[in-house]
Design a protein around this nucleic acid. Structure first.
Length: 715
DNA sequence: GGGAGAGCAATTTTT
DNA sequence: TTGCTCTCCC
């Protein structure tokens, strides 16, 4: 987004309210980020110390960008700019005793969480078929986001399932506590309770952060909301900015109600609407508007174009995903020939797995690209292994990390040995790490494993010497140096070299991690291994997106939030994909999918190319695909193949045939499922859909044109 | 203790 | 189709 020096009247208003609560309802492309910047500048100009400003962004990437811009604008740095999670890490470390945790806590990522929840389910002696660990984790996460602790949930659980969940939740928390570990949700929950239960701490922090700015407020969850409210309750200088139409993280506990109810929470709040759009051409906005107005649960908002018309907008049908990918590649080549930079082109998709076909087409067509992907890098085995070593050095109680490295690379310490050590640890009521140190006392172990464990323990002790002095801020040992030494001396490097597959990318990745550490050393004043580990556990690869790369960007629609490109491709506009099949039954979830598509559309400045395929391979099977209902919602103007925009040969699949209409309650018969009644009929012409409840008890969603339903006359 | 092979499911999105 | 887990066997 380019900087406007001259603000529009509404933008100026948003900037000028210094004191008191302020809500900025900003549409896409309204220059919201820019306004926030100006506001920070205005605060400082009016005498507020940078130190007293706390700006909260949604991603680390956004925080980094804002930090940069603040310094570019010549505003004295020193304000706190970070995500909620980073802020929580800092606060929890600072007030660890009040929060009743150890300050050297590990932050558990989803992979670590998965291990702990499995263990918890196992300890509870529950069947993982009936209590799938991932589902349990989702449930626990959502409880934590609502600030429901294991204890309070247990008290209120009366039914069978909640009771079992309470047991698992309690057990899961026990495991985390034993490891001195916090998961992402704990970071928020513990901070919210820290502020709630310690008024002194709360006022101390609120006194430092006298001015609170929160971006993407529509995607805050209850815990984040409470944290913000606690801090702001003392001074009311809270500025929330966001767009309810761009709320796409409901599945993660985000509550769109937070932004919708801001005016109730802060009755004297000033509300500023930013409805002008400086990003997209009118045709694109018209499309976005047409789509989003189908959502029931929203506040009416205008999208006012400021750019002249003549956008390139197309909806194109392809035969299958390979042709779709190829069509996009061809179109991109065309755009490049017209002088458009690949840097200004992006491809969005609903699920990460869809990137593969596109990558293949890009490689074939020699189009440079970068994938902006979730947590791929930090999920790699070699990265997690190396990090596990470092985590153990900082937090020896981190049993998940310890178990990961005890036999990686293989050093002959197997399951049996580990089990026996564990039995000893439990019997003597000491931690697993402590038991390792007393390995010679463990009678169940014979000489050989004892010796192997001793070697391992010696190695860890040696490593800890590298670190000691580093856990505290007064360190002089560089994080990168420690990481490098551990990488080499643990044998990890050697094992990667030996097993070096084709290109040995594992080795490269590990080196990249060490490089990242070196960068951190350089940029951070009080660098420490602990701080680095706690910070990077919050990173994702989305943060690695580099806008200056001469490459086409590939990313999920979620990752596209907050970005903009001259030309945007959105692929796979098919039923089951967008809206995703797991979200298509629930009305609220369907609205969120619609918002997701809305976010994708409104990233585009000049060109928007939407496509879908008639066939798509899912789990290795080529299946017939149905165009997304969202395409029909865009209206008849849009539902056509625009062969100028994207060249391809297949014929438009829409011929106007007679499609029977149904009404709710109508009795029908299906060849396979037998008799049933219509629950819902969605009239979309050729693609009309019926939801039928069959007498077998099943409810099916069917395409009328394929279902071959016959109407039955029964009362 | 570790590797090979069978069997089974299918993570949507990410701090 | 892939990728993961579990079991079995050396």
């Amino acid at each position: 987004m380019t900087y406007q020096n001259q603000l529009t009247p509404s933008q100026r208003e948003a900037v000028s309210h210094i004191e008191g609560p302020l809500l900025i309802l900003a549409g896409p492309g309204s220059g919201k980020t820019c306004v926030i910047m100006h506001r920070i500048a205005a605060l400082i100009a009016s005498g507020v110390k940078p130190y007293n400003i706390c700006a909260i962004t949604f991603t680390n990437k956004a925080a980094e960008e804002m930090r940069q811009r603040v310094s570019v604008m010549g505003i004295a740095t020193g304000s706190h700019i970070s995500t909620f999670h980073s802020l929580c890490v800092r606060l929890l470390r600072q007030y660890a005793d009040k929060a009743k945790i150890n300050s050297n806590f590990s932050v558990y990522s989803s992979a670590d969480q998965a291990k702990c929840i499995k263990q918890a389910v196992k300890i509870c002696e529950l069947d993982k078929a009936n209590f799938p660990p991932s589902k349990m984790l989702d449930a626990i996460s959502s409880l934590k986001n609502k600030l429901v602790t294991a204890e309070s949930f247990k008290e209120n659980a009366t039914e069978f399932f909640p009771k079992m969940l309470a047991r698992i939740y309690t057990q899961y928390q026990n495991i985390l506590t034993k490891c001195d570990a916090l998961d992402f949700d704990d970071l928020l929950m513990k901070t919210a309770f820290l502020l709630q239960d310690n008024p002194d701490v709360c006022s101390e922090i609120a006194n430092r952060f006298k001015f609170l700015l929160i971006d993407e407020y529509q995607d805050t969850n209850h815990a984040q909301y409470k944290i913000a409210k606690s801090l702001a309750s003392l001074h009311s200088n809270i500025c929330a900015a966001g767009d309810p139409d761009q709320s796409i993280y409901r599945w993660r506990g985000a509550d769109i109600g937070n932004i919708l109810a801001f005016e109730k929470d802060w009755p004297d709040a000033v509300v500023v609407k930013l409805e002008e759009n400086f990003r997209s051409k009118p045709e694109i906005l018209k499309m976005a508007d047409k789509l989003i107005e189908k959502n029931q649960n929203r506040k009416q908002k205008k999208l006012i174009p400021t750019k002249p018309p003549a956008a390139d907008v197309a909806i194109t049908e392809f035969e299958d995903e390979a042709e779709e990918a190829d069509g996009i590649a061809q179109k991109i080549r065309q755009l490049v020939e017209q002088g458009i930079s690949v840097r200004d082109i992006a491809v969005f998709y609903r699920v990460n797995s869809m990137s593969r076909t596109i990558e293949e087409a890009f490689i074939e067509n020699q189009i440079p690209y970068q994938i902006v992907r979730g947590t791929e890098f930090y999920n790699r085995k070699e990265i997690r292994d190396l990090l596990a070593y470092l985590k153990v050095l900082v937090n020896p109680n981190d049993q998940t990390a310890l178990l990961r490295i005890i036999n990686t690379p293989t050093r002959g310490i197997g399951k049996t040995t580990i089990d026996r050590i564990n039995v000893y640890a439990v019997a003597h009521n000491i931690s697993f790490f402590e038991a390792l140190g007393k390995v010679k006392d463990i009678e169940s172990l014979s000489a050989a494993p004892k010796a192997k464990v001793a070697v391992f323990v010696n190695m860890l002790e040696k490593f800890q010497k590298y670190v000691s002095g580093n856990v505290k801020p007064d360190c002089n040992q560089k994080v990168a140096v420690i990481a490098e030494r551990v990488f080499v001396e643990s044998g990890l490097k050697k094992s990667l070299e030996v097993s070096g597959d084709t290109e040995n990318s594992a080795l490269e990745n590990a080196n990249e991690l060490i490089n990242a550490a070196a960068l951190y050393d350089q940029q951070t004043e009080e660098a420490s291994l602990l701080d680095w580990l706690q910070q990077i556990s919050l990173f994702s690869d989305t943060d690695a997106y580099d806008a200056s790369n001469e490459r086409v960007s590939l990313m999920t629609l979620h990752a596209a939030k907050g970005l903009e490109f001259g030309n945007v491709f959105i692929v796979g506009l098919e039923d089951g994909l967008l809206p995703h099949e797991r979200s298509s039954t629930d009305k609220d979830e369907l609205e969120e999918e619609r918002r997701l598509f809305f976010v994708g559309i409104t990233r585009a400045k000049e060109g928007l190319y939407i496509s879908y395929s008639r066939y798509r391979t899912i789990h290795g099977q080529m299946l017939r695909a149905v165009p997304s209902q969202f395409l029909y919602e865009l209206g008849s103007d849009f539902v056509k193949t625009n062969s100028n925009a994207m060249q391809q040969q297949s014929e438009p699949s829409y011929t106007i045939d007679e499609i029977p209409e149904f009404f709710t309650g109508q009795a029908v018969k299906h060849e396979k499922f037998g008799y049933g009644r219509i629950k819902e009929f969605v009239d979309m012409g050729q693609s009309s859909i019926v939801v039928v409840r069959f007498n077998t008890g099943q409810t099916k969603k069917l395409m009328v044109k394929y279902a071959n339903l016959s109407k039955v006359d029964i009362q």
